[in-house]
Nucleic acid binder design. Structure first.
Length: 490
RNA sequence: GAGCCAUUAGCUCAGUCGGUAGAGCACCUGACUUUUAAUCAGGGUGUCGCUGGUUCGAGUCCAGCAUGGCUCACCA
């Protein structure tokens, strides 16, 4: 068989030669179904009862130590790693030869007896050895592994082979999401799926990705949030719904932002934002407890106590506490701008009091919110889908949860007044017209749905990736995404 | 989008003052029947990210570009 040599280094050429030799010897290097009886961890955990028994395993060869007419190797399967002991006088010359020619990285099937070596290591004394997939590329070094961060993300398959801790993060991710699903299912929530391609990008303030449908001859937006669809389901009589799925936002990439990320959104009819705080506390603290067996977690050297209840702090009180500005004494836009400027912030001369309050909060308060804190009562200007406070119509029944100074959840009592909602959309459309491409678009059908009557409801969104970061002590969102977005190379 | 830093063998990394490109692992040949970063003897892998410039001479100095990391901006 011919192999293109131009872009192959010596190591890859050697492996292709071995591949040819296998075929010449009538050994198929890419096998089929393999019947295994045990996993590596099972043999180690149940050694007492398995000692002396015949077992069959499959996995990747990760190390080889030859000793002439015998040798050792390590086999890695999904559960872990186990040592193989191989002897020519047991395997026969042919199969022993197959073993000595096998490379680190090859996927093999083995049969043999469970035993313990003189040095005490539980091992398999091999009586049969077959090739299941010849590996044509050398793996990274056994001692240092794959460290190059770029390569780890671009070639996650290699990262997963050689860095066992990586897999643990994704097992944790799965467990966290499973805990959330179980909790919500047990509370009677229905998991639903709503469109990922939207004719109108709604439900959040964000720049969308635009795509094109050929036969409909129209632009579509990848969704920035499922919110408006889920609330249409409340109108339709689904009283408790949730969706865990991807959102897409055409914005910057950072250690906390990936263009596609996973959100939990849930809506509960006849509830309000106080109920959402309780659910948030349950979901996050239980996710931690089920994963780690404790609600006290350590994130980047910071001890964080997730045991409920968490502090609830109205935004104005938070600003008074951390920024020493009392916005209850500041009633107009001009005074608000002055106060912010005095505090050293750059101020948009057109910013309203509500925008300024949010600005001051983000700049001067957020960095202090390390322990879980619900910040409540957001200004209506920045909350176009939230119900107005009955006590003061300039604010809304909304909260955001902060942990480690990061926004982890956003929730509110849902605005179900179609006339107010239409006004809010109109204000957003004006902002759009004056250049704010993150302002919401008008969604007439959503207004129509509200006009039929939407029950009062609480709604909640939790950023799953950020929750997984917190609970796995991962510094970057890329560490909790199997395939984080990367620019193509060349 | 901006600033700083990085890019050398398959992997992990050295490379001094600008003067013939280095190590360990992996790999190849040989020895070795309980090793485990196996050991011992021998072998040497390369578009020094890319493109230009300065220079007798550039991995090294300069400029631009690419990719990545961190910080900031935007955001969740």
């Amino acid at each position: 068989m011919e192999h293109e040599g131009a872009d192959l280094n010596e190591l890859m050429m050697v492996r292709r030669q071995k591949l040819d030799e296998l075929r010449q010897d009538n050994v198929e290097p890419y096998g089929g179904k393999y019947q295994r009886t045990h996993y590596s961890s099972q043999i180690i955990n149940e050694f007492e009862s398995l000692e002396g028994q015949q077992v069959s395993l499959a996995g990747r060869l990760m190390a080889k130590r030859g000793h002439g007419k015998a040798g050792f190797a390590n086999l890695q399967d999904v559960e872990g790693n186990i040592q193989l002991y191989v002897r020519q006088d047991q395997l026969g010359e042919g199969r022993y030869n197959l073993f000595t020619k096998a490379d680190i990285g090859d996927i093999v099937g083995v049969k043999g007896k469970v035993f313990r070596t003189q040095k005490g290591e539980i091992s398999i004394n091999i009586t049969d050895f077959i090739m299941l997939a010849k590996s044509l590329r050398p793996l990274p070094e056994k001692w240092h592994g794959l460290k190059d961060i770029e390569l780890r993300y671009r070639q996650r398959y290699v990262d997963l082979i050689v860095n066992p801790d990586v897999k643990k993060v994704f097992i944790a991710r799965s467990k966290i999401i499973r805990t959330i699903r179980n909790l919500l299912d047990n509370k009677g929530f229905l998991e639903v799926e709503t469109p990922m391609m939207h004719p109108i990008a709604g439900g959040a303030s964000a720049r969308p990705f635009i795509t094109y449908h050929n036969t409909l001859d129209m632009n579509l937006y990848l969704r920035i949030a499922p919110e408006l669809y889920l609330k249409r389901l409340l109108v339709g009589g689904m009283e408790k719904v949730y969706e865990i799925n991807r959102n897409f936002r055409n914005e910057g990439i950072s250690t906390k932002h990936n263009p596609e990320f996973t959100m939990l959104e849930l809506y509960q009819a006849y509830a309000d934002y106080n109920d959402m705080m309780e659910i948030t506390e349950q979901l996050v603290s239980q996710a931690a407890f089920q994963l780690l067996g404790t609600m006290e977690v350590e994130y980047q050297e910071e001890k964080i106590n997730l045991a409920p209840p968490w502090r609830r702090l109205p935004m104005l009180e938070a600003i008074k506490e951390y920024a020493k500005i009392d916005f209850t004494l500041i009633q107009n836009d001009e005074d608000a701008r002055q106060a912010a400027a005095q505090a050293g912030l750059k101020v948009d001369p057109k910013a309203s009091r509500g925008n300024i309050i949010n600005e001051v909060f983000e700049e001067l308060v957020e960095p202090h919110l390390i322990q879980p804190t619900f910040i409540t009562d957001y200004p209506v200007e920045i909350s176009p889908l939230a119900k107005r406070s009955l006590e003061d119509s300039r604010y809304t029944y909304r909260f955001e949860l902060f942990i480690y100074a990061r926004e982890m959840a956003n929730a509110f009592s849902e605005l179900n007044d179609p006339i107010d909602q239409k006004e809010r959309f109109k204000n957003q459309v004006e902002k759009r017209a004056s250049g704010d491409d993150e302002a919401h678009m008008m969604d007439e059908d959503y207004i129509r749905a509200l006009e039929y009557g939407m029950p009062p409801a609480g709604g909640l969104g939790i950023g799953i990736d950020r929750l997984v970061m917190l609970l796995t002590d991962s510094p970057s969102i890329r560490d909790v995404l199997l395939f984080p977005h990367m620019k193509p190379r060349d």
